[in-house]
Amino acid sequence: MSVAQRWTPTPGQLSFMKAALFALCLVPLALLVLDWDRDALGANPIEAVAHATGAWTLRFLLITLAITPLRRLTGLHWLLRLRRMLGLFAFAYGVAHLLAYVWLDQYFDWTAIAMDILKRPYITVGFVALVLMTPLALTSNNRMIRQLGGRRWQALHRSVYAIALLGVVHFWWLVKADVLDPLIYAVILAGLLGIRAWWRQQERIRQLSTPPGAPPGRRVIRIAAR
């Protein structure tokens, strides 16, 4: 498997890449804060902040979900080492999105917020998605992986598929008529989930066609997130 011979960063290089990625992930937030400060968010800055933080939540979710396929297709297994940070940024932008809604949009009108969550399906769905992200964020550390055990941890974190789906539905139900933007997110998500389903199917076929006792063939090494 030639891809396994691909370049792998040294621990020092990986630390540097993580630091650079961390800074990069903060850029959208920094730009938003700067634009807010210099009044460059257009006529409806509150809407602009809500939309931008929401869009970045979805984007980070999709980027996080792209790591596994990317790693498998390129053989760059170290990409997995960046996944936790990307996932945590998805959560952070989600929290910023919720804050934008609760603070800027509704100005802590808890009655209106509660009514929205109960009555408006798109808000219900978005809220559920963020609630479901919380345990994932809280268990995104080595101690929790040890405590839960790799298998249970992985089962828990598979809920990210449902979360991404809810996120896209949340966006879809929000737009008035032009579904092109949510459709783009939906197609990318379908691709990211579809390739997993296809691989799983291939694996099943391979397992069924391998006679018992035969030496294991080429298979993908599963690495628990670290």
Binding site: I46, L104, Y107
Partner: peptide
């Protein structure tokens, strides 16, 4: 009469912070 997907009870006047 709310829009099925959002409330029409309040509005944000462009330029205002609070609804």
């Amino acid at each position: 009469v709310d829009h099925p997907r959002w409330s029409q009870a309040r509005e944000r006047r462009i330029g205002d912070f609070r609804k």
